[in-house]
């Protein structure tokens, strides 16, 4: 099987856009020049569309064989806006725009619409494994022979969701985060010194450090890698990181990453790994609220 390569990585966080790790000036009006196409977009849609368009800008539309997106909670701002209008207007004379834009696949659909991309377009919404699900699908698409797949993840903080997540105790260890990340995946051209996706594993439910370490050793083994050689990007808490590092006798110090919490933070961790790890094999260990866990094994070509 041909390696699955990540040839571009874009990130939009707090209005700062980075492309392959380098900051780029960013003006949404330039990316979407037509005002009539911008006017209905909420904040999260703008974040996602901007990041996705930037990531796909070098690719002709007909060379993009798929757009696969992920979001934990989707377009929350519009969801709340429409819910509020139902209550306030007592189910009468409601503006349809927030309802339309609240749909989970809005960002993937908007990118397709703006660029005229008629290919595969699917959105995953599975808590802390939303991005991993999208990555599995995108990697499989490339393995099945498709050309460029645009892969993205977007989540936003709203005042209401911040209050609810705080009350649910989800912000005890980390502040809430948000962001948009997009990647281009395709079949590798040899000798391009780029990151490849080697293996992905996802788990739901509680997982002890011992069980996690075993999963890592199994994954390393089936891919012919010594677990101790891995460069770990730790998108999990420090205690787990230390414990895993000990159990695996890691030769390299893990790169700590997790500074905030949101459902698709692992997409940011992937961007971080691409831009900061120089090792041959990098493993991103992600943990969302102790209930969703994932391992993303990267290689280099």
């Amino acid at each position: 099987m041909k390696p699955i390569t990540i040839t571009k990585s874009c990130q939009l966080k707090a209005d700062v856009l980075t492309v392959n790790g380098c900051e780029e000036p960013f003006d949404f009006k330039e990316l979407v020049a037509d005002a009539s196409l911008r006017r209905r977009m909420s904040r999260i849609v703008k974040m996602g569309v901007a990041c996705g368009l930037k990531c796909a800008e070098d690719l002709p539309s007909d060379s993009i064989d798929g757009i696969v997106t992920a979001t934990g909670l989707g377009c929350l701002g519009d969801t709340e806006k429409f819910m509020e209008s139902i209550v306030v207007n007592n189910e009468r004379l409601l503006n349809p725009t927030p309802f339309i834009q609240s749909t989970f696949n809005t960002i993937g659909g908007q990118i397709a619409l703006l660029r005229g991309i008629h290919s595969y377009n699917v959105t995953y919404v599975h808590r802390g494994l939303s991005f991993e699900s999208a990555l599995i699908d995108a990697a499989m698409q490339v393995a099945e022979g498709r050309r460029n797949i645009l892969l993205g993840a977007v989540d936003e903080i709203t005042a209401s969701s911040a209050d609810i997540q705080r009350r649910l105790g989800m912000t005890r260890d980390y502040e809430l985060g948000e962001g948009a990340n997009f990647f281009v995946l395709n079949a590798a051209t040899p000798g391009s010194n780029q990151t490849t996706v080697v293996d992905i594993d996802t788990r739901s439910g509680k997982l002890t450090d011992d069980e996690l370490s075993k999963l890592i050793i199994e994954m390393a083994k089936r891919n012919g890698i010594n677990a101790s050689d891995l460069c770990v990007v730790a998108n999990c808490n420090a205690a787990t990181t230390d414990s895993v590092a000990n159990r695996l006798s890691l030769k390299n110090k893990p790169l700590p990453f997790k500074t905030c919490e949101y459902h698709t933070l692992s997409a940011q961790a992937l961007d971080f790994a691409i831009n900061n790890s120089t090792a041959n094999n990098t493993l991103i260990i992600s943990d969302y609220q102790g209930i969703n866990h994932s391992l993303i094994l990267l290689g280099r070509i």
Binding site: S36, R40, L93, L94, N95, P96, T97, I100
Partner: peptide, 18 residues
């Protein structure tokens, strides 16, 4: 003209009624 679409038509209907 303004290049409005079917969703705008729905919003204009709301303006007329409200």
């Amino acid at each position: 003209g303004l290049g409005l679409d079917s969703i705008d038509a729905l919003e204009i209907i709301l303006i007329l009624e409200r």
